[in-house]
Simulated assay, not measured.
Amino acid sequence: MEITVEKIAMIREDFNPKNTNLNLDIDWSVEYMNTDQRNINYNIVLKSGEYLNLNFKLEGLVILGDLEEFNHNECSQMIFHHACTILMNMISLTRQTEYDLINEGISSTVNFGTAF
């Protein structure tokens, strides 16, 4: 079985949480299309609201091997695990970062905050 990701969408609030131990209470759902074929499209949506208002979506494709059958529960767990890994990496990429710049006696602090 091969699971691919074709599209990623992430919508998050403007602020960045300052807590280093972010506890996300995530609701998730997976929707499958064409489950009677060898190539199955999927959409997974992860939503978090209490600590970080966030909506995250992956669209992709499950490609079954010649003798494989589609197992909804097993496939959903693998897609969920992969989506959570991507989500945590994207949260890390979009966090606010501070840099201290020192150039010939001039010192300043630059804040970089990015959002998707």
Score class of each variant (00 low, 15 high):
residue 57 K to C: 06
residue 73 N to H: 04
residue 35 T to R: 12
residue 52 L to N: 08
residue 34 N to L: 09
residue 79 I to T: 02
residue 109 T to H: 13
residue 96 Q to H: 01
residue 74 E to M: 07
residue 43 N to V: 08
residue 84 C to Q: 14
residue 55 N to D: 11
residue 46 L to M: 00
residue 24 L to C: 09
residue 98 E to S: 10
residue 101 L to A: 07
residue 102 I to L: 12
residue 104 E to C: 07
residue 56 F to S: 12
residue 93 L to S: 10
residue 11 I to G: 07
residue 20 T to N: 06
residue 60 G to T: 00
residue 113 G to Y: 05
residue 31 E to L: 13
residue 35 T to S: 09
residue 101 L to C: 06
residue 91 I to P: 01
residue 102 I to K: 15
residue 95 R to Q: 10
residue 115 A to P: 01
residue 93 L to M: 10
residue 61 L to T: 09
residue 113 G to L: 10
residue 112 F to L: 14
residue 48 S to D: 02
residue 89 N to G: 04
residue 101 L to E: 06
residue 70 F to E: 07
residue 74 E to Y: 06
residue 9 A to D: 15
residue 94 T to C: 01
residue 24 L to G: 06
residue 102 I to M: 12
residue 104 E to N: 15
residue 33 M to D: 10
residue 54 L to E: 03
residue 94 T to A: 01
residue 7 K to S: 10
residue 104 E to T: 13
residue 9 A to K: 15
residue 115 A to D: 08
residue 95 R to E: 09
residue 72 H to K: 15
residue 29 S to R: 10
residue 11 I to K: 14
residue 96 Q to E: 07
residue 99 Y to D: 13
residue 93 L to T: 04
residue 43 N to M: 06
residue 34 N to D: 14
residue 61 L to G: 00
residue 44 I to N: 00
residue 11 I to V: 11
residue 78 M to K: 13
residue 3 I to K: 00
